[in-house]
Amino acid sequence: MSDETPYARLTPDLVLDAITACGLWPDGRLLALNSYENRVWQIGLEDGAPVIAKFYRPGRWSDAAILEEHAFAQELADAELPVVAPLAFTGRTLLHHDGFRYALSPRHGGRAPSLESTDQLEWLGRLIARMHSVGARSAFAHRERLDRDNLIVKPMQAVLASNLPPASLAERYRSVVQRVDRAVTARFSAVGPVRTLRLHGDCHPGNVLWTDAGPHFVDLDDARTGPAVQDLWMLAHDERAMEALLEGYGSMRDFDHAELALIPALRAMRQVHYAGWIAARWQDPAFPAAFPFAAEARWWEQHITDLHEQADELE
């Protein structure tokens, strides 16, 4: 299987065969869901509710790291948190079929949360605090940490190796990322040691689904070790929203307010990582189609400007 086209063989027939191999009976209905890193399908079944099938990108995670994700999701579900955990078949949650690794989970629908609602933000804060109480019980052994190597250094290397930025911008890009790296390092040093724990890792509004019964969290694919504020800042679009999240969080678990000073650093790291992620996946045909702007010089010029602004804020 080519690293450049990892999903070239993942046809609808192969997906259906993988579901059948679990002893389920698909009715032929397939719906591709919005996912670029992995491939995710909603599969209709003849004798039950649909399931969600996630086919993991080859080479990204080790089996041990995927199993840690599954175990964390199940630990959260066992603690009565609204988290979608994978289904087990003959005791296994990580499944293999024709060279692909995949997992199945129940389908849970929902709508985006209202981040203007103080009540909903406080509710999310309480749930994230409960999630972190579980996350603090033990540590990941195989999953990434939220650090400069994974979110700055490697993404920068991927961009420079991709030749996506024009040659005239490559040195400017390298220089600004190095500036961001220094500023991020200085900010973490200034804040000092903070507690780290197992996190959702990518807790943005798209990974929270709301129903009449309340919210539930999906997609622990980026679960990693880091500070608690990582699971809060992407849900807070302004100071009022952060206050509401922390009001809910603080009712269930102590929060170190010194971590709030890390938010500009975390935001800058995410920007660097985003460009690096696109560059690292550019040979996957889905990426040029979904992110055509990354082939344009003007986007890289704006990206460089944005990173300088992030560094200005940090400095």
Rank of each mutant, 00 (worst) to 15 (best):
G226F: 01
G226A: 02
L232P: 13
L232H: 10
W233S: 06
W233N: 03
L235C: 08
A236E: 11
H237C: 05
D238I: 07
D238Q: 03
E239R: 14
E239A: 15
R240N: 06
A241V: 09
A241S: 15
M242R: 10
E243H: 13
Y249A: 11
Y249T: 12
S251D: 04
M252Y: 00
R253I: 04
R253M: 10
D254T: 13
F255L: 14
F255G: 15
F255Q: 12
D256V: 14
H257K: 07
H257S: 12
A258W: 00
A258Q: 14
A258M: 05
E259T: 08
L260P: 06
L262F: 09
P264M: 01
P264I: 02
A265C: 09
L266G: 08
R267Q: 15
R267L: 11
R267M: 12
A268H: 10
A268L: 09
A268E: 08
M269K: 08
R270C: 02
R270S: 10
V272I: 14
V272G: 06
H273P: 00
W277N: 04
W277A: 06
W277M: 04
W277D: 03
I278C: 15
I278E: 02
I278Y: 05
I278Q: 12
I278T: 11
R281V: 05
W282Y: 09
D284H: 11
D284S: 12
A286K: 02
P288I: 10
A289K: 14
A290N: 07
A290W: 00
F291Q: 08
F291H: 14
P292T: 08
